[in-house]
């Protein structure tokens, strides 16, 4: 019985030690609706949620000893800035939640972190090395940079740039102005309208199943990735596809690609509908495939 008491006592001590190793974060400020919030440093996860208030809150737990610098300017603040520094020799482990007015611009940077943003209509500038970024909603402007971390965007930012080294990029939605770039990750753009889209990869595969607006343009360049362009039945666009060493597979019309310059690679020029948008697809040695998508035929291509 004594030993049981000892075990219980030991367990209580252990759990309080674990709790004591955390410190609560709770910072609240009156801010303007278009406040600019900058958060940088040691945290493992950050969830940003838009709310309908003239204030912001940063709440969560960080390891004891984490230094939090910065704060807000005179209320109502137009700018709030935080810098988190983990105790020496420890990995970033803080879990934070940030609540901001929807029109806010949020700038967040961390080494290895999960960032999830929803409902922000202002601007987002998110930067990680590893981890994961998920954006839900339609910010006016979205800039994401990641090395290995995957990026998912669900929504239609007014202006969007996503760049990764090996992280995969998935966009569900469209944008009037999109730039998606990866070295070796995959890029998948499904659904949604695009006006101007530029997609570049070195070795990563690219799948584009979005719709191009009238007079829209799409450029996809890859060195060795496969490029898949999925087209709705009523697509109206001119397509120029070129490979230097890869093949072109056309499952959309009966036209066959011709051998490229000096007999290397292949070329295919295709006009669909009245051709009021244009797609340029180029791959050095990856294959290019034109496929039928199952997108509703009522939408303009």
């Amino acid at each position: 019985m004594k030993s049981l008491h000892f075990l219980i006592a030991a367990a209580v001590v252990c759990s309080t030690t674990a709790l004591a190793a955390q410190q609560k974060v709770d910072r609240r400020h009156a801010v303007t609706r278009d406040v600019y919030v900058r958060i940088n440093g040691a945290f493992a996860s950050l969830r940003v949620t838009a709310w309908d208030r003239d204030s912001m809150a940063l709440v969560g737990d960080v390891p004891k000893g984490t230094r939090i610098d910065g704060g807000a300017s005179e209320p109502p603040s137009k700018g709030v800035k935080y810098y988190l520094e983990a105790p020496a020799g420890t990995q970033a482990a803080g879990r934070l939640e940030l609540f901001v007015p929807a029109g806010a611009t949020v700038w967040a940077k961390a080494a290895n972190a999960t960032m999830e943003v929803s409902g922000v209509t202002g601007g987002l500038d998110l930067n990680i090395i590893g981890g994961r970024i998920a954006v839900n909603g339609t910010p006016r402007e979205l800039n994401v940079e990641s090395m290995d971390g995957a990026v998912t965007v669900t929504g239609s930012p007014g202006w969007m740039r996503v760049k990764t080294a090996s992280g995969n990029i998935v966009v569900n939605g469209g944008s009037p102005d999109a730039g998606l770039t990866t070295v070796s990750g995959t890029i998948t753009a499904q659904g949604g309208d695009y006006e101007r889209a530029r997609i570049e990869s070195v070795t990563g595969n690219v799948v584009f199943g979005g719709l191009l607006r009238r007079a829209g343009s799409l450029t996809i360049d890859s060195h060795s990735g496969t490029i898949d362009l999925a087209l709705p039945v009523k697509a109206s666009l001119d397509i120029e596809a070129t490979t230097i060493a890869g093949s072109i597979i056309n499952n959309v019309t009966s036209r066959r690609p011709t051998p490229g310059r000096e007999g290397r690679g292949e070329e295919l020029s295709l006009g669909l509908g009245i051709g009021d948008a244009r797609a340029t697809l180029r791959s050095f040695k990856g294959n290019i495939r034109l496929l039928r998508s199952d997108v509703s035929p009522n939408k303009p291509g």
Binding site: I129, G130, M147, S166, S184, V202, H223, F284
Partner: peptide, 17 residues
């Protein structure tokens, strides 16, 4: 390591192209 890996991938593509 991550940066160097990506650079190596790009450099190989540059040399080939």
């Amino acid at each position: 390591a991550a940066v160097e890996r990506a650079l190596a991938t790009i450099d190989a593509a540059i040399v080939e192209a």
